[in-house]
Simulated scan of single mutants.
Amino acid sequence: MIAEDSVLLREGLTGIFTRFGGEVVAAVGSADELLHAIAQDLPDIVVMDVRMPPAFHDEGLRAAIQLRGEHPRLGILVLSQVVEAAAAGELLEAGTRGLGYLLKDRIGAIGQFVPAVRDVTAGGTVIDPDVVHQLMVHHRAHDPLDALSPREREVLALVAEGRSNSAIAQRLYVSEAAVAKHITGVHTKLNLGPDTDDHRGVLAALTFLRSR
């Protein structure tokens, strides 16, 4: 299934897949049309644009994230002129099995594009090196741990190791009350509010590990 607002590219992709023995069950021009088509006939893979009507922002990526949640085994190959780092990171966090993200200016070589489609359909992962670079830059620029003090980082690192407040206090030669205060500060700065109280320690540890 193809989701691409450019008629020329949509027809070109249809021709490529047909030439190499594929069957295009639908070719649409918007994310809404894609979601409707998927509900009627689930394909092996969706090849889709990032920016589509109506706003031409990240509608394609948002649709891809929704599809990953509803159909985890569906192959998704995203094509884009640019890297939407925030949404792309969210898509990748949902799992990279059967996922591809390629820049359009790199798919001119059919000999490289067709194998990428086959890899993603088979459950593989194909990510453009420039996409990886942009995600790393975005991650460094938006590291949530930057808000923590050096001591709070130390405490969080020990929490991520599974240490208790008592063990952390002994390790850092401070009181347990001081450790509890630092942990509260970590929760506040990482926006882990009281509604997630039962899981805040786990969420804080995951945030630390993802930022390493």
Rank of each mutant, 00 (worst) to 15 (best):
S164C: 13
D119H: 06
A141G: 01
E33P: 06
R19D: 11
A55G: 12
V159M: 11
Q66N: 03
I38Y: 00
V24T: 05
V25R: 10
E90Y: 02
H57D: 15
V28Q: 02
P194N: 07
V24A: 04
G29I: 14
A64F: 01
V83R: 00
D58K: 11
D197G: 07
Q66F: 04
A169R: 13
L156I: 03
I2R: 01
A63G: 03
F20A: 09
I183F: 05
H182V: 11
R62I: 00
E154P: 07
I65V: 11
V131C: 03
S164F: 13
A27M: 02
I110A: 13
G193N: 01
L145K: 07
K181P: 03
V179Y: 04
E90S: 11
E70A: 14
T96K: 14
Y173S: 15
L13D: 03
K104V: 02
D146N: 06
I65G: 00
P43W: 06
A205D: 03
A63S: 11
I65R: 08
I38L: 12
I76H: 00
D44V: 05
A27S: 13
R163K: 15
L34T: 04
G60C: 03
S164D: 09
V179C: 13
A205N: 09
R73G: 07
A177V: 14
V159G: 07
L35P: 04
G75Y: 04
L158N: 02
V117K: 04
H57T: 14
V25I: 14
N191T: 12
V174S: 07
E161N: 11
V114Q: 04
G69D: 13
M1I: 11
L192Q: 07
A94Q: 08
E59D: 10
G21L: 05
S149K: 01
R97I: 15
L99H: 07
L172H: 07
D146S: 07
